[in-house]
């Protein structure tokens, strides 16, 4: 039905977003998840510092290695973050809409002069605000630990790379927040929507990298004597793997925090022309390298948000 609307779609947006953020900041559920993140972050960085001190490498990007260094049995800080950020997002969003429905507050709120989109967008922005605050706090904590325990302040380029990584993490968390909001509009029960989001998260973080080659092999036949077929296979496999936001995020952290990364796929000798093996890529090149991944994730957020919008817009609000 074509429909013309009057009034700003942003009416009430900031009110809803701020209320949402305040609710999250005082909710026990979020406190728990944040505590988990905080402890793992401190643990991972502390372990990394021990490792760095032990090896005494002359690394140009010592500060960045604080984030990426893993010491057995602990994974690195970025690995932890990549694993736990979706959890935070899901905790923030899984009962965003259906929770209001079950508390019977939805019809009361939507009887106020606001658009439904404002409500949905407000929920999303409120969650993003919380994520942004947490990431920033985490970032400051890690920087502080680095300065205090290693006695080294991050260099200019390191700060920029670090902030770019922060932005990537933010968008990555945004994807999962959008996923959980979609489920919260699709399912009436918060338990169902949480389970659905967690299932998707498990598939993408754990099983997707195993599934990608299987799916690819169903489409491309590998001929051991034909390098082109092998290349096709690898390309397809990478393409499928990149459906998972986890893959995109991993590639972005790699590109941003390991400046020596030149490409994510197979590297051709033509690409290595004029390149010193093991030499870091300039910052602008690294940013260009990860740009498609970032754009892809933003597109995913937009797409997911549209799905949530469409499903919410036509819903009957009987509660």
């Amino acid at each position: 039905m074509p429909r013309q609307r009057e009034g700003s779609p942003f009416t009430g947006l900031s009110t809803i977003a701020l209320k949402e953020a305040a609710d999250h900041m005082t909710s026990a559920r979020i406190h728990l998840v944040l505590l988990l993140i905080l402890l793992t972050a401190i643990g991972a960085v502390y372990a990394a510092i021990g490792q760095i001190k032990a090896t005494v490498s002359e690394d140009q990007f010592l500060f960045l290695s604080l984030l990426t260094t893993a010491r057995d049995p602990l994974p690195s800080f970025v690995a932890f973050l990549g694993f736990l950020l979706p959890l935070v997002s899901i905790a923030l969003g899984f009962d965003g809409i259906n929770g209001e429905y079950n508390r019977r507050t939805l019809s009361r709120v939507l009887a106020q002069p606001i658009y439904r989109d404002a409500f949905l967008t407000g929920k999303f922005l409120g969650g993003l605000l919380v994520i942004a605050i947490c990431l920033l706090a985490l970032w400051l904590l890690v920087t502080g630990m680095g300065i205090l325990l290693l006695g080294l302040p991050p260099g200019g380029e390191e700060v920029i790379r670090g902030l770019a990584f922060l932005l990537a993490s933010f968008v990555y968390a945004g994807v999962w927040l959008a996923v959980s909001l979609v489920f919260s509009t699709l399912f009436r029960s918060p338990a169902t929507s949480a389970l659905a989001a967690l299932a998707l998260w498990l598939i993408f973080t754990i099983f997707w990298s195993m599934l990608a080659p299987l799916i690819a092999s169903a489409f491309v036949q590998i001929d051991p004597y034909d390098p082109v077929s092998q290349l096709n296979f690898i390309e397809l496999q990478r393409g499928i793997a990149r459906i998972s936001p986890q893959t995109l995020y991993d590639e972005m952290t790699l590109g941003l925090l390991n400046p020596t990364t030149r490409a994510f796929g197979p590297v051709f000798t033509s690409q290595l022309k004029n390149a010193l093996m093991g030499s870091p890529l300039p910052l602008s090149e690294s940013l260009r390298l990860v740009w498609p991944q970032l754009a892809g994730m933003i597109a995913a957020v937009v797409l997911l948000f549209t799905v949530a919008y469409v499903s919410f817009q036509r819903q009957e609000i009987r509660a």
Binding site: R103, R104, R108, Q112, P113
Partner: peptide, 17 residues
């Protein structure tokens, strides 16, 4: 014109939450 309507109408749902 939902905004114009909703700003003039108060609603008490059954089993308000």
């Amino acid at each position: 014109q939902p905004l114009a309507v909703k700003s003039r109408v108060g609603y008490l749902p059954d089993q308000v939450g």
